[in-house]
Design a protein around this nucleic acid. Structure first.
Length: 612
RNA sequence: CGGGGAGUAGCGCAGCUUGGUUAGCGCGCAUGCUUUGGGAGCAUGAGGCCGCGGGUUCGAAUCCCGCCUCCCCGACCA
């Protein structure tokens, strides 16, 4: 007698109200049968796939591309996606988050009120209804959440509150790529905290940060937490969770000496100690014809017989930029001094100047300021002409530099900081290199790559100001609410897991997110498939999620290869050993094999699934 | 938006330089027989707007012009 493969009438089937910490599809009592599953695996990589997650998710029949940056999730993919979302939901519940679902289609007025209708620019999808009224497809939902809370809550006693949703988000990315990793439509968990004061916001932020740590730990991801600069969302404290993978789009730095990790934008260069000025030679200007670049200057100085050797690091490169504060028309010219062996990192510069706009000087700017001699700019031309001059942290008192003498074809050597010039301030925007000293320990920095999978963010009052979200305090006076926002790219997490957990044969799912706990394979010319279905049904009855390969006329090699590609953590093979009453259990991650007796096999497999 | 590549069957590709029968190969799919522990064999078969539009020519997947789309590398983001 073969057990009912669906387990539908089996009283042992767990009830659908699953306990926390279980994958979403545990106990749903739907046996996944390969013979009928809507699944087609591909033998070859899709031509447009570049990164492992894209190749494997496509080949494994988890997703299919529909349009650039737009994908469909097929049955197995949907299960994985839901399992990831399920872990996230559980941890959100644990910190008191309440799930809601807001529309993705949002009318223009909300984003006008916050200023993001224009701020977001081209990266948001805009649509119009038949009457011409404008909408956008939500890229994130600070506006609607703020408005939602404003409509319901009005007393300090109502706060704090944490609301979140798991929803498709839309961004018209300039360049979608890497399959699921960076789509134009993607699944995101976005959470928002509302607090009565800064102290509350800090607490809510910590709650989310801790929840994220638990989520990503449970999801089996290797990740780092780096401090991030606030982007278009405006605000202060902010950290990013980056899943470490060579294919990641975000560069960050790590230290050889500790767990220190930071965004390139956030790296702080340690300043060397100041040195005594006494005894240093006088600054001397030299005629240095045709030396507009650092390289030509260094070569010239070394051939000039000055009695010492210069390197690019002994020169001071002065880069001129102009910045414009938001809402202003006027540009301010600012000089930035960095050691000549380094360039100004535009990303770091933009982050440092935020929210001001930054641009390099154009020819007409030089024409408008004749004292700026292109290629020969020194600190003093700027300082004398009341332009701000900001210097790299390495430019400390007592350091001496070869730099521009503010007239064509002339440089000055031994220009001493603190004696011959005093910068208006410090700016840390030079490029960061492998081997630079770590700011927090004895080690040196090196760059690594990661995928941003989560972001926690103390937003502050940008949106509550825009929508005038107040609560009446105990003193009867209105108090402006302060917000945090916390995102996780749910679909991106799926891809990040694959990036971190695969081999040359296919995906290796962590059990929490796997589409099934056990892949039962029936192969052979006898009644292996029948037995496989029976074993699968019995496992299912124990609440174990099973994928069973009950396809007939499919050779064993195909089934094994598919199983490895699909990546279910444990396989049970009902094959040639069946005549001797023996099944084989394989571990996808380690490749270990174990023979077990058919008698008691279900219990043994169940024990393995539960962690021995 | 700047730079590079590609559009031919569901998927992966050849054919194009040098125009010429019915556009081909592998995988997949269908039917039958055989096969069943590592992507099976044989046989038969279905499946094409050769990206779109125009042009040259007796004749265009192939040559010319225009357009569209997609992918990859750089500036933005979960």
């Amino acid at each position: 007698m073969t057990a009912l493969p669906t387990g539908e009438d089996d009283p042992a089937t767990p009830c659908p109200f699953r306990p926390a910490t279980e994958p979403a599809n545990r106990g749903v009592a739907v046996l996944l049968r390969m013979s009928t599953l809507f699944l087609r695996t591909l033998r070859e990589d899709p031509a447009d796939a570049e990164v492992p997650s894209h190749k494997l998710l496509a080949r494994g029949g988890y997703v299919r591309r529909v349009a650039p940056g737009v994908h469909s999730w097929l049955p197995l993919g949907k299960l994985v996606l839901e399992n990831v979302a399920s872990v996230i939901r559980e941890e959100m519940s644990r910190i008191g988050g309440q799930e809601v679902l807001l529309p993705a289609l949002v009318s223009r007025e909300y984003y006008e009120a916050s200023g993001r209708w224009t701020e977001y620019g081209d990266s948001v999808f805009r649509v119009a209804d038949r009457k011409g009224a404008e909408y956008l497809l939500g890229p994130t939902h600070e506006e609607l959440f703020t408005q939602l809370v404003k409509g319901e809550y009005s007393s300090y006693k109502d706060f704090p509150v944490i609301l979140y949703q798991v929803q498709e988000k839309f961004r018209d990315e300039a360049r979608p790529r890497a399959g699921i990793l960076r789509g134009r439509e993607f699944h995101m968990k976005d959470a928002y905290s509302f607090d009565i004061d800064d102290e509350g916001l800090r607490r809510s932020y910590e709650l989310h940060r801790d929840a994220y740590v638990r989520m990503f730990d449970r999801l089996g991801l290797r990740y780092v937490i780096v401090s991030a600069m606030s982007g278009a969302m405006g605000g202060s404290a902010s950290e990013e969770f980056l899943a470490e993978t060579p294919t990641g789009e975000d560069t960050f730095v790590r230290s050889t000496g500790s767990d220190y990790a930071a965004n390139v934008e956030a790296v702080r260069t340690p300043a060397p100690p100041a040195r005594p000025i006494e005894g240093l030679p006088e600054a001397q200007a030299h005629h240095t014809p045709e030396t507009p670049t650092i390289e030509t200057l260094v070569d010239f100085l070394n051939d000039a017989g000055l009695g010492r050797t210069f390197t690019a690091a002994d020169t001071l490169k002065n880069v001129l930029v102009k910045i414009r504060q938001p809402g202003e028309d006027e540009w301010e010219i600012v000089g930035i001094g960095v050691p000549g062996d380094r360039d100004v990192d535009m990303k770091r510069l933009e982050a440092a100047m935020e929210p001001a706009e930054v641009a390099l000087l154009e020819d007409e700017d030089f024409e408008a300021h004749p004292f700026l001699v292109k290629g020969y700019v020194g600190p003093n031309a700027l300082l004398r002409n009341k332009l701000r001059y900001l210097a790299d942290p390495r430019v400390v008192e007592g350091t001496r530099w070869a730099t521009g003498a503010d007239q064509a074809d002339h440089h000055v050597v031994d220009l001493v900081c603190g004696r011959d010039f005093v910068p208006d301030g410090v700016i840390d925007v030079a490029d960061v290199r492998d081997g630079d000293p770590s700011p927090e320990d004895e080690g040196t920095l090196y760059t690594a790559r990661g995928i941003e999978i989560g972001h926690v963010f103390q937003l502050g009052r940008k949106y509550t100001d825009a929508f005038e979200l107040d609560a009446l305090g105990p003193d009867g006076k209105p108090k402006r609410i302060t917000m945090g926002s916390y995102g996780i790219g749910v679909s991106r997490v799926v891809a990040a897991i694959v990036e971190q957990s695969h081999d040359d044969k296919g995906i290796v799912w962590p059990r929490v997110v796997a589409p099934a706990d056990v892949h039962v394979i029936g192969t052979g010319k006898g009644d292996q498939v029948e037995v496989a279905l029976r074993v699968a049904g019995e496992l299912e009855a124990l609440g174990i999620r099973v994928l069973v390969d009950d396809r007939r006329n499919v050779s064993p090699g195909v089934k094994f290869t598919d199983a490895e590609l699909l990546g279910v953590p444990t396989s049970v093979i009902v094959g040639k050993g069946l005549d001797q009453g023996v099944l084989e259990v394989r571990d996808r991650a380690s490749g270990e094999r174990e023979e077990i007796a058919l008698d008691g096999a279900v219990e043994r497999v169940a024990a393995i699934v539960r962690g021995d």
